[in-house]
Design a protein around this nucleic acid. Structure first.
Length: 574
RNA sequence: CGGGGUGUAGCGCAGCCUGGUAGCGCACCUGCUUUGGGAGCAGGGGGUCGGAGGUUCAAAUCCUCUCGCCCCGACCA
């Protein structure tokens, strides 16, 4: 491609509405254009990286035995009513009506349509397992789209759905998909980790998220530097509770006068105790009613874990205004002794402990020496807190580390959630009707591209890894002399012949502009053809990542660059 | 949906408080010079100041409403 004939315009300044690196750089590099909040045009350059990423995903899916199809983005509301998600999905589900007032959705995911498709065509265990995927535009009407491609409303996702006769068969495909995802991200040169995750609204029994480690990531990942343990912070557990002291003899329940101490820090300071020695009382509202949760004073409650334990549809902090009514105690002085709360949960870290210091359910009053089973009913124990950095790994005890990450893929064992609601069945060997067991596997294409930029850039711009670079090589034509032009053209056509993705910068621009643009866009390799070095019969080439210039005769440079590109390709897909 | 901010040329911004001919930088066009890291000079084109209503002799500027966008929070395949 010749730049002079291409549609590629860079920006000198960061766009005002971009605030993460990948968004800024992709806008400045002329890859993206915002059309509305969370809705973007992929400009020609951006589309090239997206298509290359899709190509890698497609290869790995096919290699893993998945079969590609393409489902509609606009889907009948009926199917969503049948699965029950018409009601369950909130306002992120974009609902539209056609001219005759029929309900449709702009699909955020395609479990309904795929299940509908499979139940029509598959009747026998002989046809299973099957794994179908598509790479399709999705729409999720996010409350707050941001970060460019990392959290758009319209986005491109690869989604696969597998159907099985047994959990064993599902587990097999699940592992294949996990392996395929790892290969995809490795080929995109992404430093990633697969972690245990919560299944969220999709439901199901097991789930792993693929996280790309990056400062700008929206998720936190807990990882063990020693063993392979890794989990989303929502799900992660630790063995930290084992450091509790030996049980002490029970003391008397005694009121403590603690005026003006609403927060746990206040109470600790007032009573001269460490916050870890206190018990923090949290109160949540949910579809199952109000719940009191007791945790160690220095710990944070984990909404996801609590919600999952309860089996609740939704769970949120109880507003201050309802505290008195629901618990019988004022905000800041709430506790389990004599509470009105019907259900009291306690984190396992409190189980070995005696003589708790808790809120007294009266203004300015806490209680010391409170003991479960004596002063209040035994709470339900469980893991209800969020892991902190430094907590011991649940498997090997090593201090856990916490990183920020971008979720680029998510695999789920769905089970029979959709096959049940949508009657997706087959006949087994005995002629018995059985529900198909399902898995689903999502991979964000745009996010993967954005994550690559987040992980690979410098002050001058993007540094593309070769497999997803919009062009592998840029030829910067420096100057307008005849020999410069003809040499650049020769190099260009030879690289094209060698099957290299190459862009010839033949624009009538000053050299500085061309070099800055090449660095900003981040072509992995650059060849510069200019009068100075050409006087010695040489041209120059360099890697974007180190920008070290190397000189050589045109034939040598071409040979070398072709070798570098093709070997990187071969290496990354092996 | 709560809190905060912002909307002026393709992009980045000033002007608004204190009403009176709409400006700057980049980009764009013309000419000359320049040409290995975002050139210089000269000339030029482009904006119903997000929209509607109001106050006023006069509104980008003041008031009311509305819409878009951004940030923080809650939420999230």
């Amino acid at each position: 491609m010749r730049w002079s004939q291409y549609f590629l315009y860079t920006l000198r300044e960061d766009p005002a509405d971009a605030d993460v690196i990948s968004h800024k750089l992709m806008m400045r590099a002329g890859m993206l254009r915002k059309v509305a909040a969370g809705i973007y045009t992929y400009l020609p350059l951006g589309l090239r990286s997206v298509k290359k990423t899709e190509g890698i995903v497609r290869e790995e899916m096919n290699r893993a035995g998945a079969v590609e199809l393409l489902m509609p983005t606009i889907q009948p509301g009926e199917l969503w009513m049948e699965s029950g998600r018409w009601k369950l999905y909130g306002r992120e589900l974009l609902r539209i009506k056609d001219r005759s007032d029929r309900d449709f959705v702009y699909a955020p995911t395609a479990e309904e349509v795929i299940t509908d498709t499979v139940r029509d065509s598959v009747n026998s265990y002989r046809q299973l397992p099957i794994n179908l995927y598509q790479i399709q535009t999705k729409f999720r009407d996010e409350l707050r789209p941001r970060f460019g491609l990392m959290r758009g409303r319209e986005f491109t996702m690869k989604d696969s759905y597998s159907f099985h006769v047994s959990m064993e068969s599902l587990a097999e495909t699940y592992e294949k998909m996990r392996a395929a995802y790892s290969r995809v991200f490795t080929r995109c040169a992404l430093d990633h980790v697969a972690v245990e995750a919560d299944t969220g609204n999709i439901g199901g029994s097991a789930s792993h998220e693929f996280m790309v480690l990056a400062q700008s990531g929206e998720d936190a990942v807990v990882s063990c530097p020693n063993c392979k343990y890794g989990a989303n912070i929502e799900k992660a557990t630790s063995k930290f509770f084992s450091d509790e002291p030996e049980p002490a003899p029970m003391t008397e329940l005694a009121p403590l006068h603690t005026p003006g101490t609403q927060s746990i820090d206040d109470v600790g300071r007032f009573l001269k105790k460490k916050t870890s020695e206190l018990v923090k009382t949290l109160v949540f509202d949910s579809d199952l009613g109000c719940v009191m949760v007791l945790v160690r004073g220095d710990r944070e409650g984990n909404l996801i874990k609590i919600k999952n334990y309860l089996g609740a549809e939704w769970l949120e902090m109880l507003p201050d205004s309802r505290f008195q009514d629901e618990t019988g105690g004022p905000v800041g002085y709430c506790g389990p002794v004599g509470t009105r709360a019907k259900r009291v949960l306690a984190d396992v870290s409190l189980k070995p402990r005696k003589n708790w210091i808790v809120g007294g359910n009266k203004p300015d009053t806490h209680l010391g020496g409170a003991n479960p089973g004596r002063d209040f009913a035994q709470p339900e124990y469980g893991d209800f807190t969020t892991v902190f950095a430094g907590d011991p790994c649940p498997r090997c005890g090593t201090a856990l580390e916490i990183y920020r990450g971008i979720e680029v893929g998510h695999v789920f064992k769905l089970g029979t959630k959709y096959s049940e609601s949508m009657h997706c069945t087959y006949l087994d060997e005995a002629g018995q009707r059985q529900l198909m067991i399902m898995g689903c596997y999502g991979l964000g294409i745009g996010r993967t591209v954005a994550a690559a930029v987040e992980q690979s850039h410098d002050d001058a711009g993007i540094i593309w890894p070769i497999p997803i670079a919009p062009f592998e090589v840029v030829i910067t034509q420096v100057g307008r002399e005849d020999n410069v032009r003809t040499t650049a053209e020769e190099v260009y056509s030879k690289l094209l012949d060698a099957g290299i993705d190459v862009l010839l910068d033949d624009r009538d621009e000053r050299p500085g502009v061309k070099f800055k643009d090449a660095d900003l866009i981040g072509f992995p390799l650059r060849i510069a053809v200019g009068a100075k070095s050409l006087a010695n019969g040489q041209i120059e080439w360099s890697w974007r990542k180190d920008r070290v210039k190397q000189l050589g005769a045109p034939a040598e440079v071409i040979e070398r660059v072709v070798r570098e590109v093709t070997s990187t390709r071969a290496h990354s897909s092996s």
